[in-house]
Amino acid sequence: MDEWVDEWVDGEVGQVSTVCRSEPAAVAPGFPEDFAALYREQRSALVWYVRSQGATEPEACDAVQDAFAAALRAAGRIRDRRAWPAWLRTVAVRSYLRSVSVHGRSREGHDGRALSAAAGDPAEARREEEFVLSVLAALPAQQRRVFTLHYEGWSTAEIAVQLDMERAAVRQNIARARRTLKALVTPREPG
């Protein structure tokens, strides 16, 4: 995975690393104190992000741990604290995709059930969680990446920088993803 880190830090992944270099006043997380805070703040959101790309929970957790380990090794090389969330997402998803390409796995499709209220029923809540994740994972890759960042609260501009896209393309992908999702979760009329 180190080569990914090098690539990312060297700017091959996109503009965020360039942004990092252009803002030398910002500082990398102080280690280990700030690293622990970064881990606590970002870990669960990262697991969700990788899961929404189609990973199982163990795969996502493993990829996230790998990403933070890479972050620990790269600590002195990314200076802008604000760049870490994007950096971690890129590295975590790459780690997941690499493990899939090495080990292979069959992605489970969703069963097309309509969503139901899950409040108060932990088992149903977990099923609903799995269902939403499987539906997100069923989106086309670009729509999925845009949409999951959108749901994490990233602005159109931030997503555009992170994914190296035009803002208009980001908005278009969000709209398409919504339409796709709606079609996926709407129960089909019996034919």
Binding site: P32, F35, A36, Y39, R40, R43, S44, V47, W48, Q65, D66, F68, A69, A70, L72, R73
Partner: peptide, 18 residues
């Protein structure tokens, strides 16, 4: 995830992986 996860163990794992 926040409530269930053992962050100390997670950090130890990261140090080992790194």
């Amino acid at each position: 995830a926040d409530a269930e996860f053992d962050f100390e163990a997670g950090l130890a794992d990261i140090r080992a992986r790194a």
